[in-house]
Amino acid sequence: MLVCSSFNTRISLRMSILEQLNDISTTVNNEINSIRLIDHPKGFELLPSRCEATSIKVLLEKHGLSYQVEIKSNVEYISTNGRFPVLIFNETDIVCGFSELVKYLWKRGYSLSEKLNQNEKCDMDIYTALIKRLEALELFTSWLIEDNYTHVTLPAYTSHTTWPLSAILPFYKKRQVYRLVASQGQWHDISSEMLMAETKDVASALTERLGDQGTFFKDGDTGQDVVTELDCLVYGHLNAIFMTKLPSYRMKRALGLHSRLIDYCKYVESKHGLRAQRERS
């Protein structure tokens, strides 16, 4: 416990320093010169972080921003809000997670959703919330399903630590994930049946929203597809889910039943060139 508490205080100290840095830099700098993307080493990332990383890479590619991938095993502790991968802009600004990145880029004039009207912007926020539900399900799949936990998650998560910490850290993380999943409304009934039902809900909602359209939104005047941040987010998640292999993966099967989603991924890849850049280390 002593080790952990000192560890946590150190993290919070570092967090406050980082936040101060962030505040100062956002007011001063407006140009983006260099981007460093800090990620887990390949093969040691978990499903949720892989999803987030794919969407971030796709979004950066879409904006035409080039980035450098750096590999560090302690990304989780660099992050200020528990989301990773972490992006460092101009060596000073630290941005963690997709939603923060979208806000950061929007402040600097990089936006894919300028043409949308008020109603469509609302729609974008609504469906982003739906993807948050999918995120909770990803966490559930990798942490709370016993097969995946013992064979994939635990070895990957404890690869960079030695014995006493490798027993303590996963315990805390698992508890946190349990709480996060439970806070989605299913306070006591966390089971894999729930997982299937929830995933089906999300998948059918996405399918019905897409309908015959190529992407989520269309230009009002020309009728052409508009690729927005939402497309990057959804594509990133779906692509990572379909590409990952896990011992017990009911979620993938539930999503795979909706062939419309697979078609959507292929369409966006071929037509609009949404694809994550190959990793350079």
Partner: peptide, 18 residues
Amino acid sequence: SPKETSEITAITSLITES
């Protein structure tokens, strides 16, 4: 319509979220 049904699911998750 199906689009509205999907909106129900999405807005419900938004409300529980925030």
